[in-house]
Nucleic acid binder design. Structure first.
Length: 415
RNA sequence: GUGGAUGUAGCUCAGAUGGUUAGAGCGCCAGGUUGUGGCCCUGGAGGCCGGGGGUUCAAGUCCCCUCAUUCACCCCA
């Protein structure tokens, strides 16, 4: 049989319910905090991503699903959404401060492993149009609030500032000056990074490069006056909000567009892919894609990873659901008609579709967690009354069909 | 892209050194109870042993290739 593509997932059954709970929670948290939803196209012009993420980034170099359409346009399935949101802001003719959230699929051609898929979903929040430290703090707070509300404990927020176009160049030079004498001790990847992306040197996890990293120049000590103040205010605001964090001088992020604040939130249950949320400020991104000056800060939060950390979880207590058992195939039509009437009155009702024994029908109702079963046969059809069995305790009562929905809903499924 | 592990029934897994009709538990279906669930008992259905090639008188078992899953590297959500 044809199988699903590598690195993709089907979601069904209880898994789908877990997704629904997380999604509705995300919408609630975001909208309460004043974020409004934005939906962007699944594919974009390839250059949107190459310009924003950076030609040298791994995402652009080897992870994009790129293709040419029949009109010869170079297109790419979005590997991330921040650039799209900034583009959409400009195309909609907006100005001033806007807060957006999105929940959509992203695509990266990578080797799948725990917490890493080729198609994955992110909740993202972006605050556009201001470089105020308050925006950084509110954004991190939004991620924090959502993760806490979802039931995640043991969160760990790592924070750093990587400067802006004023101080970053000097910091890059300092890094290069520090590393150059040790060039031969570096791994092959780092030798390349030394020239095209020195900040990424701090990202290397190889044994051989560890010692050098520890003594490398720290970004926080090379910030210009403005960046220093900005970062200090972000930290102070987080303190006031009661959000605990720790400084990580080695935190740099893989996308080129980040400036100033960068952060990640990690969780121990995730194995090697421990980041559940990552983001930062990107004050130059807009200009890079030709949109004029527009500061912004945002995060992406991996929903698959969040669901892993939450574990299976307990199903919420069952609500009132009626299973209509049918005694013969001839009565399935009338039973469905009754079900539609009861559904119209607000009751959740399922009708047996196969021609099976009552015993089998009861068994299925029990296994699938229905609260009540009623048998629909010739007698019931004639009398317009149903005997309803409450599965939790086996009690039965006979009620007129016309009132059934109201009675069951009022009684609830409680014991 | 690199390395390791794993693919046998719907699910979880047994199947020493190759050897006749490939097994268990759970699940599913039916019956025991001709209009009633959970527990119990009985019976039944369901497998080109991931796919392809090779070695052999003989392959689920050995070899090669391939696909997929999974863990790690890399990188990121």
């Amino acid at each position: 049989m044809v199988q699903r593509p590598r690195g993709t997932a089907d979601v069904l059954g209880p898994e789908a319910q877990r997704w629904q709970r997380v999604e509705s929670l995300a919408r609630r948290v975001c909208e309460r905090a004043g974020f409004s939803e934005v939906r962007t196209p699944t594919f974009e012009a390839t250059e949107l991503f190459t310009h924003s993420s950076g030609e040298s980034s791994d995402v652009v170099q080897k992870e994009m699903y790129s293709f040419t359409d029949r009109g010869g346009r170079p297109l790419t399935l979005r590997p991330e959404s921040t650039a799209s949101v900034v583009r959409a802001y400009h195309e909609a003719g907006l100005s001033g401060v806007h807060k957006f959230y999105y929940m959509q699929a992203h695509f990266r051609y990578e080797r799948p492993q725990k917490g890493r898929l080729r198609e994955h979903h992110q909740l993202g929040c972006e605050i556009l149009g201001t470089d105020a430290p308050l925006a950084d703090a509110e954004l991190i707070a939004a991620a924090w609030t959502f993760l806490s509300a979802a039931g995640l404990s043991d969160l760990s927020v790592s924070l750093n500032s990587i400067g802006d176009r004023v101080c970053r160049p000097a910091y890059r030079l300092a890094l290069q000056a520090y590393y150059r004498p040790h060039r031969d001790e570096l791994c092959a990847d780092c030798q390349r990074r030394l020239e095209d992306n020195p900040l990424r040197l701090l990202d290397c996890k190889r044994e051989s490069c560890q010692a050098l990293k520890q003594a490398a120049p720290k970004s926080r000590q090379h910030l210009c006056e403005a960046c220093q103040q900005h970062f200090a205010q972000v930290c102070q605001l987080l303190d006031e909000l009661g959000i605990r964090y720790r400084f990580d001088d080695l935190l740099v992020r893989g996308l080129d567009y980040y400036t100033r604040t960068v952060f990640v939130i990690t969780h121990s249950a995730l194995g090697a892919q421990s980041e559940v949320c990552g983001g930062g400020r990107y004050d130059q991104l807009s200009e890079v894609i030709g949109g004029g000056a527009l500061p912004g800060v945002g995060f992406g939060l991996g929903l698959e990873r969040l669901l892993i950390t939450l574990g299976e979880g307990d199903q919420p207590a069952g609500s009132t659901r009626l299973y209509l058992a049918v005694t013969s195939p001839q009565l399935q039509g009338p039973a469905l008609a009754l079900a539609m009437q009861l559904r119209g009155a607000g009751l959740t009702v399922e009708v047996e579709l196969a021609d099976r024994s009552l015993k089998a029908q009861f068994r299925r109702a029990d296994k699938e967690g229905f609260s009540h079963v009623a048998v629909f046969g010739p007698g019931e059809q004639a009398s317009r009354h149903l005997t309803v069995r409450h599965l939790a305790d086996g009690s039965e009562s006979t009620e007129p069909m016309a009132d059934l929905a109201g009675i069951l809903l009022k009684r609830g499924s409680g014991l």
